[in-house]
Nucleic acid binder design. Structure first.
Lengths: 351, 351
DNA sequence: TTGAAAGCGATACCAG
DNA sequence: CTGGTATCGCTTTCAA
């Protein structure tokens, strides 16, 4: 067994408080005594105050949690998530805090448990999907948190973008290029595992808020151009990965006869779609494709997409967590987005 | 204040142990009583057992730490690190553990403190550089750990590759293609911040073990071809990023007159080098370039490189941490590497 | 400056 | 199946 602070105190012949002070409050005892304590401690192999015990006593952990939906390993699958994490990490570091990555099981009960068991001082909620129950759980623990979902509750700290307007900008771009027969691609549109072409009577039927907002934004632009929701083809991918994006396209014949453009809800899906189109022998640009996020790969692939500042989003979120805004209204921060036009989108090609 | 377990016990009129059991050992009490306890708890706003207190009592945290050198945000800058993390995350998840990302300050004292303060059950040491003092500190805490450095101590759990042989394979490839005048690129070769062309009398002077091993591997192949260490140009980048890789090349005239090939110690640096060469108007392939790691971007850039299984490395490391091998000899796992030849390397072009 | 005492919030063992 | 008791390892008033 490792020796405890108590053992050190006994060995030196002082009280536990004094030993504790030797570590945490050097100014509370003579430098000489302190040195003597530290020396014997080292000699006894005492590793310093136990972090857990200290946290319990102080009521402060020194770590913030980042909540992810689904498999933790997926967190790194999407470069956009990595950008976000980078920002959070940067801020955490600045505040001398560690980062605890917390994966949320798919079932609400399990997710609740994960949140209840995380030893942290607060949460950055990156996860998408069923956030309601999760946020309630955080609130139940009385911990501060910051969301990035699309619909922040009144008074909650939040950082995000105008999802709907951002999506609309991409769709308007395609409308201007003359596209009218288009497909929309998102992951798990109905949150029921349906892959391929789900039946979505109205965009309001889409459960996942971010997906819903982006699809709604796409729809807005086409509605303004006289194309109704029912005329849009909705495609659902198994999950937000390049491979699934490709699979979703492959499963359907999205050729020029069918659609002239495809709007994806993420770059990862869009890149997958490009992979599939290319593999199916489709000529480049016979189908215009747009993405969302503007991850690094988007640039090299020439993908037209909506850029959102991932790293800034993470950094801002963490900063909001560490330094609670005094003014409540300053607790919700809207970040800008930009449409980045590259080679993956172009005018409709007549055959 | 949030109510505590004690308060719930009093409210229900049972002992604290019973309430505790209601949460952690459902089989230790009647379903009926349990329900009654859970109900009043919810009603009182009791968020369930405090994670920190529980950890203290149980002597188990439910999280493992990943140690990174330098800035935490850098951890995500290198796609290879992301691959590694993905693997660790996958394993941690499988073992119902969270992941604590711990950035290590550059100074040893600070790094020690970071290790001492991390509330975890064990460490995956990904950091490079001064590992000695850090590993001692971990050992001092009596926590299990797994290293990925190039020189594991006897009896330590370790997972890695044969750095030197792997590097050699890349160099041999270039030798076969006829290259004799070459440059070697690594980050912070002398660990003193020198950028550009450091004076390295012998490869054994390189402090960082991984860098040293890889450079030594490169040198081995050229030595076998009759090219001495002193004839090799060593380049040092400020850090392991694409931009710094580019900058290191730009600072020197690595044109065909000077060198016909460049061997980088990481893909990130190699890609940066390609950027710089291209930007300086160098014709493609006038200088052959090789990397190390085989990150996703390497494939799309056509970079010849040494592939090491990043995700497997992380997964294996974490598994080794969770399931200590009974046989000590099984505690050190050597992963295979492969030379992946792409378009960035070719025969020497005569001018 | 130093030390004694009182918890922080929970769990485990063991008797009933 | 239930409850008393003894910690887990440390920090923090407050008095001396």
């Amino acid at each position: 067994m490792k020796p405890t602070l108590r053992a050190v105190a006994e060995a030196v012949g002082v009280s536990r408080s004094t030993v504790s002070n030797a570590y945490g409050r050097p100014d509370q005892l003579s430098a000489e005594l302190r040195q003597r304590i530290l020396d014997t401690a080292r000699q006894m192999g005492y590793p310093g105050p136990d972090p857990t015990a200290r946290s319990l006593r102080r009521g402060f952990v020194g770590a913030i949690g980042v909540l992810f939906t689904s498999r933790l390993s997926y967190a790194f699958t999407d470069p956009f998530a990595v950008q976000f994490l980078t920002g959070v990490a940067e801020a955490a570091e600045r505040h001398d805090s560690n980062l605890l990555l917390v994966p949320l099981p798919a079932d609400l009960a399990g997710a609740r448990k994960a949140v209840e068991n995380a030893a942290v001082d607060g949460f950055c909620v990156y996860c998408a999907g069923e956030e309601e129950g999760i946020i309630d759980t955080i609130r139940g623990r009385g911990l501060p948190f910051v969301t990035t979902s699309s619909r922040p509750a009144e008074g909650d700290r939040w950082v995000g973008i105008d999802e709907r307007a951002a999506a609309r900008s991409a769709a308007e771009h395609l409308v201007e290029l003359g596209h009218r027969r288009v497909a929309l691609l998102a992951d798990d549109v109905l949150c029921d595992g349906t892959v391929g072409r789900p039946r979505v009577a109205a965009v309001t039927d889409v459960p996942h808020p971010t997906t819903r907002d982006r699809l709604a934004g796409f729809a807005d632009a086409f509605a303004a151009a006289g194309v109704a929701w029912s005329e849009l083809t909705v495609l659902s991918a198994a999950d937000n990965t390049r491979a699934s994006g490709a699979a979703a396209i492959r499963a359907l014949d999205v050729g020029p006869e069918r659609c002239t453009a495809l709007l994806a809800c993420s770059d990862v899906l869009a890149l997958g779609a490009l992979d599939a189109l290319r593999a199916s022998g489709e000529e480049d640009r016979s189908v215009s494709v747009t993405g969302f996020d503007d991850i690094p790969e988007a640039a090299s692939a020439g993908l037209t997409t909506v850029r959102q500042p991932g790293e800034a989003k993470g950094r801002t979120a963490a900063d909001l967590l560490f330094d609670p805004p005094t003014d409540v209204s300053a607790g919700q921060i809207l970040l800008p987005t930009t449409l980045v036009v590259r080679s993956s989108s172009g005018p409709v090609l007549r055959s």
